[in-house]
Simulated assay, not measured.
Amino acid sequence: MRKLLASALALVMIAALCGYGFWTQQRPEGHYLSDLRIELALNHGAPGEHGNVLGVEPLLFPSDYQNLQRLHRKLSAYLQQAREQGLVGPRTVVVLPEHIGTWLWARGEKNALYQVTRSREAEQWLELSNPLRYGLAMLAATGDDRRADAHLRMKAEQMASDYQEVFGGLAKEFGVTLVAGSIVLPAPYVEHGVLRVGRGPLFNSSLVFAGDGSVLGQPQRQQYPDSEVRRYVHHGRQAPLQVLQTPAGRLGVLIGSDSWYPQNQRQLEQQQAQLIVNPVFLSGKHSWAAPWRGNRHQDAAQLLPLARGQVDEQTAWQQLTQPVAAGVSSLSVFMRGQFWEQAGDGQGFAHQGGELLAGPPSAGARLLNVWL
């Protein structure tokens, strides 16, 4: 009798495990509606031989990342509208916001992950749907927040491939130089024109694509990760800042709060940068008007001319990102949208010829164009 009960129990457990394994592989897609409208919030200067820098502040949600076709459709629609307004050409540098690639960890998951309202619930669905990958990633995870590390590490190879496919494809489709915001990956590098992931710590990195879809340079790592990601994202100060030659001039990329630090801008100035772009993700609804958070976890922040809370976020970003060298233009582009309870805020702006350029505030997707 005992052997019979044990055999029955074993069969039940095997059936349950097989059923769970089958369930994890199911990825039906839900109904999808998307707003493809975008507003031209800033258009400064006149067309000329030097080209232009075009910031795209997309309005994105988790469902936009369920498959690559959805993400491509929305971003392509934005760029097509810019093209119809005469803002896209071979000397155009398009800039997308910080972490636009990081959310690719959500690609190809169960409908429930996109429908919940809290990021904690979404993470639980991610773990339940990918038990083996999550378990192996936890073994390799580092940093103070190993769970967050594992969520990104477990899908890193897929994310890197998707990132290059989507953003390299957009650059080629529209014939522009494209600064693809940023993506968090383990020790990313480019080998033979392909974005690869390594086995080291996570870095918040940006890649630039040429008008033929090829990669320019190596991934630019964020030098000073902000307080929200420092528990699992490693600083990239061992990798120097790079300046890339583009049809619109020599281009440097400063990710997020890297734009605050004069030493970063001086490194780009020493390499004769003519254009500095700044992809940003500022989290928190209405945070643009809230007191400036600063970055108390970075020693270099103690040398900044502003103290935490002294001014609001808008004032701090607009003051601290002003280029230190004359003749250098800059553009800051912010992520918008809602990722579960985490909203993106901020209004993009530019500096040119010592002048601050900022269009009227708005809540939807925005284009910001500056002729160089």
Rank of each mutant, 00 (worst) to 15 (best):
K3L: 15
A16Y: 09
C18E: 13
G19M: 08
W23T: 05
Q26A: 06
E29R: 15
E29F: 15
L36Q: 14
I38S: 00
L40V: 12
A46P: 12
N52Q: 13
P58S: 09
Q69W: 12
Q69C: 11
H72P: 09
S76H: 10
A82S: 09
Q85S: 12
V88A: 03
R91W: 04
T92E: 03
P97N: 11
E98K: 09
E98F: 08
S119A: 09
S119I: 07
A122N: 04
E123L: 11
Q124G: 06
E127N: 08
L132T: 13
A137Y: 05
M138S: 07
A140M: 13
A141D: 03
D144W: 13
D144Y: 11
R147L: 11
D149R: 05
H151N: 15
K155H: 12
E157K: 08
M159E: 05
G169M: 04
L170D: 02
T177Q: 01
A180N: 01
G181M: 01
V184I: 06
L185A: 03
L185F: 02
L202P: 01
S205A: 13
S205I: 06
V208K: 03
V208T: 06
S214C: 15
L216F: 12
G217P: 09
Q220E: 09
P225T: 12
S227N: 13
E228D: 14
R230V: 12
Y232M: 09
A239T: 08
G252F: 03
V253G: 02
I255F: 06
S257L: 09
P262I: 04
Q265I: 14
W288V: 02
A289T: 08
R293V: 15
R296P: 10
Q298S: 14
A301T: 13
Q314H: 06
T315W: 13
T321F: 08
G327T: 13
V328S: 04
V328Q: 03
S329P: 10
S332L: 04
F334Q: 01
G344V: 02
G346T: 01
G346Y: 02
F349Y: 07
G353L: 03
G359H: 00
G359N: 00
